[in-house]
Simulated scan of single mutants.
Amino acid sequence: MRRNAFLGYLIAQFIVIISVMALFRGVEDRQVAATLAGILFVALPVVLMTWEYRRAELSQMLWFVVVMQFWTLFALPILGIRLANWGVPFEQLSFIGIPGPALHQWSSKSYMAMMAVTAWCWWKLSRKKS
């Protein structure tokens, strides 16, 4: 029986959340903590999509679409505007006219959607195997 990889992906997504909370508690400079968190949020989808593509190609297309939307619409733009505007408070930044704080709020919802779809794929594939 093959192991359901989506449980591992879900655990990795939880670990990133815990890591980001630890960064903001442990790193005194908020801009550095936010940048390190952004790097985690950019790297995680790339790693997960690469693993999943190598494992099963595009068999779970919905999962790929949801992960890709988080990565392209939120993780990359937020990290990009932070790096391109070093020293400027995040509240003053925007991406294509969307204020940084609003983008961040929507990114949280998008990340939760990514986790929900990951959990759904795990559940769906677990039922299929049993």
Rank of each mutant, 00 (worst) to 15 (best):
G87F: 05
M112W: 11
F74T: 05
F41L: 13
D29S: 12
C121A: 14
L125D: 14
R54Y: 10
F41D: 06
L93Y: 07
I15A: 15
P99E: 14
A5Q: 15
L44Q: 11
A116K: 07
S107R: 06
R54K: 11
K129F: 03
L73F: 10
I18D: 07
R55D: 06
M61W: 09
T50Y: 10
I81G: 01
L73C: 13
F90D: 00
P101I: 04
I96P: 00
G97S: 11
R2E: 15
K124Y: 07
V88C: 07
N4Q: 06
A33S: 05
A116I: 03
V65I: 15
E28V: 09
I15Q: 06
F95N: 09
A34E: 00
L125M: 06
V117L: 06
S94I: 02
W106V: 12
R127N: 12
V66S: 11
R82K: 10
L40Q: 13
I96H: 10
I11E: 00
V32H: 03
P45L: 01
L62R: 15
L58V: 05
V20Y: 01
R55E: 04
A102R: 05
A12Q: 07
L93F: 04
R25Y: 12
H104C: 04
P101M: 08
A22L: 12
A37C: 05
G97Y: 08
A119F: 04
E28W: 08
Q31D: 08
M21C: 11
G38E: 09
W122T: 02
M61D: 03
L83H: 03
S107T: 03
A5V: 13
P45V: 01
W120E: 08
S130I: 13
V117Y: 10
M1A: 08
W123D: 03
C121M: 14
L36F: 09
V42I: 11
L125F: 03
Y111P: 00
S94N: 12
